[in-house]
Computed example of a mutant assay.
Amino acid sequence: MDALELLLNRHSNPRLIEPAPAGEQLEAIFKAGLRAPDHAALTPWEFIVFGGEQREKLGDILAEATRAKGDDEDSVEKARQAPLRAPLVITVVAKVKPHDKVPQLEQEISAGCALMAMQMASQAQGFNGIWRTGWFAFDRGVHQALGLTEQDQIVGFLYLGTPQVAVRKLPERDPAQFVRYFAS
């Protein structure tokens, strides 16, 4: 599959099983993420990897945040099980650095581009994934448990693995509905 075909057929797959990318495949995924646009070469990213039993530790962190929010025990258990939906979860964090010419938003977008590049590199190698965010990404208790600083922002949890089922083809969208050429 060439690069344009990959981009034009991008899709998420929430039904993921073993195996997850590992070794050189996972290294290629990280390298793709590190090619994200990066104004002033700030490298404003961190990738926190949860595989195997480490996913249970992430589940404990999410469960504790859910409990601290005051949700019921069913919600707490659902949060605990969430990272087990895929054999590998990578938390992508914008490591925002003070800079006169590169605002916080631009650094967070850069981390988001890294996440998408990682998902695309996964798909290019026969794996797939889904980018999940939700309120956990903004919860200070989750940030603290992951050792993040006040300036850091989780941009998403990238769930990766082997597609369990084929996904339906996404509907084609007409670019004319989203594109406007400026005329003075």
Rank of each mutant, 00 (worst) to 15 (best):
N13W: 00
W45R: 09
H39Y: 08
L84I: 03
Q125Y: 04
L84N: 12
R80N: 05
G156H: 08
H11C: 09
R35F: 13
N13L: 00
F157M: 12
R168C: 01
D2S: 08
V142Y: 00
G33W: 03
E24A: 10
F47H: 07
H39P: 00
W131P: 10
P175I: 02
A32M: 11
R140Q: 13
N9R: 08
R35G: 10
I61P: 06
F47P: 03
P163Q: 03
G156A: 08
E5A: 15
R140A: 14
Q119C: 12
A32C: 04
I109N: 11
D71G: 02
P87I: 04
V49R: 12
I130L: 07
A137C: 12
V102E: 01
M120P: 07
Q119M: 15
E56Y: 04
L26K: 13
H39E: 04
G147A: 03
G141R: 15
P98K: 13
I90T: 06
R10G: 06
P21F: 00
V49N: 05
N13V: 01
V165S: 15
W135Y: 07
D38F: 00
L26M: 14
A86K: 00
S12H: 06
L84K: 15
E46D: 14
L34N: 13
Q107A: 07
V76S: 03
A32G: 05
A20M: 07
P175Y: 01
R180G: 09
K78H: 08
Q164T: 03
T162I: 01
T91H: 07
E24G: 05
V165F: 11
F178H: 10
A117M: 10
L158P: 07
L26C: 02
Q144H: 14
Q119H: 13
V76E: 10
V155M: 06
R173L: 10
